[in-house]
């Protein structure tokens, strides 16, 4: 249970983890997520499920803070303290016609199951992925296979279009591309920008929100978001919401809620990776 079967840093900071948990593997549907805890005292971090196999599932984890750092420093064979999932509502997978998928950062991985499922429904898939630079692009081959059109944008122009998902999206729409549905996963800023672009064209837009979460079952209320003026919980009502209805400004504020706690935690936890501590003190008889 919860064993890390495989772990690889695909590109700097993005780790692909295969975790053994048959229940999640059996039940997970595209768009759902899991909550992981590396150790008993660890923070609880939500991760999109990217692929499932018999009794394992794959996630792409962005190493960003202490907890993800702890997971990044674990080795295959080690076990996570807890895995809860699958959580959240599965993504809407229907036949729409022309579907646009936008992914950035961990979202490049997270859009992959959606692309696969949407493709299976007979949709025509246009995928746009963004990264800061060419060396941060991953999963390109797999995404190309399930996409009918595939675009890359980098903020430094080192590959594909110089810009972002919205840069390519804007160009495609202006060049006459018509989309019947759009889904975006990535950093909040990107999802907001893309939603703003699709809004005037009335393209139904779904975004997967990455809020702070605790229990993932709708009890704590950490993941509260305002969608269309109503309070929703990202963990049980989402993570997918109508991108045109999300109160983005509020979301950004809520995401910064724990800055001070993070600072203290950063100052007071030992950071040396566990393997090294063992290396230092485990074999001290030399």
């Amino acid at each position: 249970m919860y064993e890390i079967v495989e772990k690889r840093e695909e590109v700097p900071n993005i780790h692909r983890l295969i975790i053994r948990e048959p229940n999640v593997a059996k039940k997970a549907k595209p768009g759902q997520f899991v909550i992981l805890m590396p150790d008993e005292k660890g923070e609880r971090v939500p991760m999109s499920i990217v692929e499932t196999k018999k009794d394992t599932f794959t996630i792409f984890m962005l190493e960003l803070g202490i907890t993800t750092g702890k997971i990044a420093n674990m080795h295959p064979g080690e076990k996570l303290y807890a895995v809860a999932g699958p959580l959240g509502q599965p993504a809407e997978i229907e036949y729409y016609g022309n579907v646009l998928l936008g992914g950035g950062c961990y979202g490049i991985g997270a859009i992959y199951p959606l692309a696969k499922a949407l493709k299976a429904k007979g949709n025509r898939i246009v995928t746009i992925i963004e990264a800061r630079s060419k060396y941060l692009i991953y999963l390109e081959e797999k995404l190309r296979i399930v996409s009918d059109e595939f675009y890359i944008a980098t903020s430094d122009g080192s590959r594909g279009t110089n810009g972002h998902v919205q840069t390519v999206l804007d160009r495609l729409i202006k060049n006459g591309h018509r989309f019947d549905h759009a889904k975006f996963i990535g950093c909040t800023y990107m999802m907001m920008n893309c939603s703003n672009i699709t809004a005037p064209y009335r393209i139904p837009t779904r975004v997967a929100l990455n809020t702070i979460m605790l229990d993932g079952s709708g009890m704590c209320g950490c993941c509260r978001v305002s969608v269309g003026g109503k309070t929703k919980f990202a963990c049980v009502d989402g993570p997918e919401f109508d991108g045109h209805q999300v109160d983005w400004a509020e979301l950004m504020k809520r995401k910064a809620a724990y800055q001070e706690a993070e600072m203290i935690s950063y100052q007071t936890s030992p950071h040396i990776c566990r393997a090294l501590i063992e290396n230092y003190f485990g074999e001290s008889d030399e």
Partner: peptide, 29 residues
Amino acid sequence: HPSSCMICAQAEHCDKFNSGIMKAGVITG
């Protein structure tokens, strides 16, 4: 030098939105 953010047209707004604490393992921007 990982400089994509320095030349990124969106940098200013992105900075405002990502005002949180940044402490990624490897620094790519």
